[in-house]
Design a protein around this nucleic acid. Structure first.
Lengths: 228, 228
DNA sequence: ACTGGAATTTTGATAACTCAAAACACTATA
DNA sequence: TATAGTGTTTTGAGTTATCAAAATTCCAGT
């Protein structure tokens, strides 16, 4: 088995991410969605997926969609590992901004050797999550995906910690950065208003931030243990 | 002008390096040599070089060889810049060994953005040379190539500093490393014996090292100012 | 000047990836 | 239950990069 081309890696990664985003346990990604995620024509995705199926990396059901096999899932997790470690490295060690590392990592993830990745992993102290709070798979490809709540579901008024941002759009990331809403930040949700389609968040230095509900759903939080 | 594929970058780099290695001012790299350096069939090199010529990156003279145009030379220098900064970064920041960084940099040089490279450059303090002592072009693609002597040409007995190793073979590099012969090291040549085809070098901690003349020619040195 | 051997170029194929547009299948609803 | 639409697949073609092997060119030595 030759090492997968970066095209193959990108398809696997996209399928993995589409599967995760999907209704739990539906797990069949339609070709249109996949093609959209990769920016290719639908027919291209069909063709490529058929060859992935021949390599045993995915299960393909014509007209229904595609799903990773265990082998494909492992490979995808390792790509994600490279991507996320690289992002964290660029932020922590090279001081790049949260918003600009995504594209860089997108290219470097296909060029970095396992050796380099492991060294980066060690240097960063075997971190559990990247700058967006996305969990980093270990070198065997397994990853813990913790239970979570979002700004839409967490209890009102209690302090929580922002743990993860499930959107890579760089304009969105820049907005969060300028609002002080980075993973690790302690905040609390003061109010939700379905009619106004927003939530009110009290953040760093008691600053008040209003966020649309669509965006709020992309911010995951964990309960914060009160100290003192 | 689209950005060059990594294949194009590799051809330009190979031509650049072959030109530098060549008799000064002959400057025409034959297809055979180029194909050999890149590990492709001769016909492949011919085809590719013709398309490079159409893009104005090289001058191609059928049956004679190929030479970089100013545009090609600049691009090649920028590839070299990415490669060398990357190598130095891997050694200095990630603690990788001198011998193992070459292949890694070979892949990363095509994936790293100018932005990342500049950041690395700044972090390393705008270094003049990579771990092998090869000069690093600046971001405009110009590079100073200092005059040099080698272990074969430097004065006998006087202290010199090892400045550059013009061979990337990793077995050779490991030998040098184990002998303490890294760029920056102060040494002196005690004797040369043409019949025995070796030179005798006195190195770190008065250790004596014998090196074949072929290898000795690959070690460049500069006079060392005596202090005290 | 001729010619034989080496280097180079040409030719014909292949592999991986892509697109546009024609053909097709599924399913929701009328 | 027929069908209109949407989404999917197929088809035919193009791009980039490669190889092996045939054809060609060059030059060195008679």
């Amino acid at each position: 088995m030759a090492l997968p081309s970066s095209t193959v890696e990108n398809y696997l990664k996209a399928i993995y991410q589409a599967q995760s985003a999907q209704d739990p346990e539906k797990r069949l990604v339609p070709m249109g969605r996949l093609a959209g995620a990769l920016g290719v024509a639908p027919g291209t995705a069909t063709t490529m997926v058929k060859t992935l199926a021949e390599s045993g990396l995915v299960d393909y059901e014509p007209y229904a969609g595609v799903r990773l096999t265990p082998a494909g899932e492992k490979l995808a997790a390792l790509v994600l590992r490279r991507h996320r470690l690289m992002e964290l490295f660029l932020v922590k060690v090279l001081g790049m901004s949260w918003a600009e590392v995504h594209d860089e990592a997108e290219r470097l993830e296909h060029a970095a050797s396992d050796r380099l990745i492991d060294r980066i992993d060690a240097m960063l102290g075997r971190p559990a999550a990247d700058p967006h709070g996305d969990p980093i798979p270990d070198s065997s490809g397994s990853m813990v995906t913790p239970e979570y709540q979002t700004l839409l579901t967490c209890p009102l008024g209690s302090p929580v910690v922002l743990t993860r941002v499930t959107d890579q759009d760089s304009a969105f990331l820049r907005f969060l950065e300028s609002s002080g809403l980075k993973p690790g930040q302690a905040i609390r949700v003061e109010a939700r208003d379905a009619a106004a389609d927003h939530v009110v968040v009290r953040g760093r230095r008691e600053r008040q931030i209003m966020i649309g509900m669509r965006a709020a759903a992309k911010l995951q939080v964990a309960p914060l243990e009160q100290t003192g």
